[in-house]
Nucleic acid binder design. Sequence first.
DNA 1: ATTAAATAGTTGCGTATGCAACAAATATTC
DNA 2: GAATATTTGTTGCATACGCAACTATTTAAT
Lengths: 151, 151
Amino acid sequence: MKKHRLGKDISLIYRYSQIYFDAKLKKYNLGSGQYIFLMNLFLNNGINQEQLAHIVRINKATTARAVANLEKEKYVTRKQSKRDRRSYELHTTEKANSIKSSLVKIMNAWNEILLDGLNTEEKRMLLKLNDKVGSNILRHSNKPGDDRNMQ
Amino acid sequence: MKKHRLGKDISLIYRYSQIYFDAKLKKYNLGSGQYIFLMNLFLNNGINQEQLAHIVRINKATTARAVANLEKEKYVTRKQSKRDRRSYELHTTEKANSIKSSLVKIMNAWNEILLDGLNTEEKRMLLKLNDKVGSNILRHSNKPGDDRNMQ
DNA sequence: ATTAAATAGTTGCGTATGCAACAAATATTC
DNA sequence: GAATATTTGTTGCATACGCAACTATTTAAT
């Protein structure tokens, strides 16, 4: 078995996904670095940065910068939490909501490219196996319990 | 089907792979950004940068910088090609060769983490399906014919 | 109640990556 | 052979991402 192959495919898929989203989101003044955060906020409105970072499994610093960008572009508002003054509740704006369906279309188009030629069972296996790899990594990294069903 | 899931798993696997390799390669003054180039040079000694960039499907600018780093650390030599004076033949040094087996061990250890709990068929499917996704992307990007059997 | 430890978010710094522009060299066209 | 087009590698610029250090706030321990 060619051990490079998996890492190389993963790297390629990741990098080209970034390229694709950068190109498609440019018109909205968004980049690949903000997309995953915004998409998750649509599904989890009102959560704080810490929670958001946890959901997408991305570093807090990166999350803070992405959210700052989203706020700057007026896709997200941050409201200091009454329960904990360190924390901000994040909400998508009307502006964000107005482009949501376009963003979903962009994502779906990319997924169609990724999954072209795979039957239902193969798609299921692809997700399942990559998910297993992801879980393996998190377990190895001693990350908290898996709340990956949150979205 | 949760459309985010694939992108999120891919992103996670990629990022944590980078983190892992950065940590493990630090002692050799190498980073995750050089690893894939060096590993491929072990397998394809004497090729030029253009070819190397093509094999790993990474941008020429990035390739140039990675190779420059490898040269700086004396893992690689660059010899101007006699056939084409723009081009440089890349060779791994004795220094590189002396750490090759350690690098292979690092990579194998990571692969064991990634593939933990998967049986032979699942491993085969994981590779095959991710490879299919990679091919889909390249086809969509109008990249040249698939010489992915080169390594 | 006071002190110590942990947490939410921010910022500095560094690395990796892509695009675009460019120079030098080579290949193609006329 | 001259002009034009393409190729190989480099560099500037920008973005995304992680680690570490930090501040302010909250929680836990005493």
